[in-house]
């Protein structure tokens, strides 16, 4: 497996979303992608957040040559900003976002921070004959949330036209979904490896992109991993029990403000 390179053309690509320091899930996802015959891999950013020991993520990415697009978390950590740029206004969400960010910042090495500063905002490549733009939030803004229930198809079409691409691939929300329109256009939110999809399952998700009969096939892949071990590691690091609960139950307990009503109603909190 190789990293997705700008300008490259591929037929089968593993696309990973927010890792949030979940090195156990990232390792399991890389193994899964290799077993499914992915020729290349890309990570769409936010390497740190809720999880423990953020430096453990970087060797996995380097070892397997995974390309990384800059997320808002990576941008903040690399530049030493005050917060994660998620834009919360709710006091409780801000409290936990601050804890998560401060822990991650303090435990990310200068060497890894320097590497994060080199991540590009986007990587453009091709899947067969289709142009693909890989970004973190949206092509126009790294920290823009694109939720299934809050993103009109005509809005996605305008993004695709404005940025001259057929397919947009992103993450940032933590919930995987996709939309197709027109002849070959698509938006794919690959989900997140860092925490479950607020669906009551402990699995996390990535997307396998494949050219099938000239078109793009998207397979959302659930990854079971040793989430109990991650929970122990999080507790050893004295991370908030609310973060641990999400890993163990599959329900989001924090950073809920940014969810649209439809997505939030599908969760427990």
């Amino acid at each position: 497996m190789i990293g997705v390179e700008a300008g490259g053309t591929y037929t089968k690509v593993a696309a990973f979303g927010g890792v949030y320091s979940n090195h156990l899930a990232l390792g399991a996802a890389i193994d899964d992608a290799l077993s499914r015959g992915a020729e290349a891999a890309i990570c769409l950013g936010d390497l740190g957040a809720f999880g423990p020991n953020p430096d453990k993520v970087f060797p996995l990415l380097r070892e397997h040559g995974v390309s990384v697009v800059r997320g808002n978390y990576d941008d903040s950590i690399a530049r030493g900003l005050e917060d994660c740029q998620c834009g919360y206004t709710d006091p409780r969400d801000n409290h936990y976002a601050r804890l998560s960010y401060q822990y991650t910042f303090q435990n990310t090495s200068p060497k890894n921070r320097s590497w994060m500063a080199t991540f590009p905002e986007e990587i453009r490549f091709r899947m067969g004959a289709l142009d693909v733009l890989a970004c973190h939030g949206s092509p126009r803004q790294t920290n823009e949330f694109l939720w299934d229930s809050a993103t009109p198809t005509h809005f996605l079409d305008k993004l695709a036209q404005d940025f001259d691409t057929d397919v947009i691939v992103g993450t940032h929300t933590g919930v995987h979904w996709m939309r197709r329109w027109g002849d070959h256009r698509a938006y794919v939110n690959v989900g997140a490896l860092g925490r479950p999809a607020n669906d009551g399952r402990t699995d996390v998700w990535y997307a396998m992109l494949e050219v099938v009969d000239g078109d793009l096939a998207v397979d959302f892949v659930p990854i079971g991993y040793d989430h109990a071990a991650l929970a122990i590691e999080m507790r050893d690091e004295e991370l908030p029990e609310e973060f641990v609960e999400t890993i163990l139950t599959g329900w989001w307990t924090t950073c809920l403000e940014i969810l649209p009503g439809k997505e939030r109603a599908a969760g427990r909190f």
């Binding site: 903040s76 900003l81 740029q85 834009g87 905002e121 126009r140 803004q141 790294t142 940014i258």
Partner: peptide, 10 residues
Amino acid sequence: NMPGFAADPA
């Protein structure tokens, strides 16, 4: 409802 299309962090 939420802050919208805000400043590009970069």
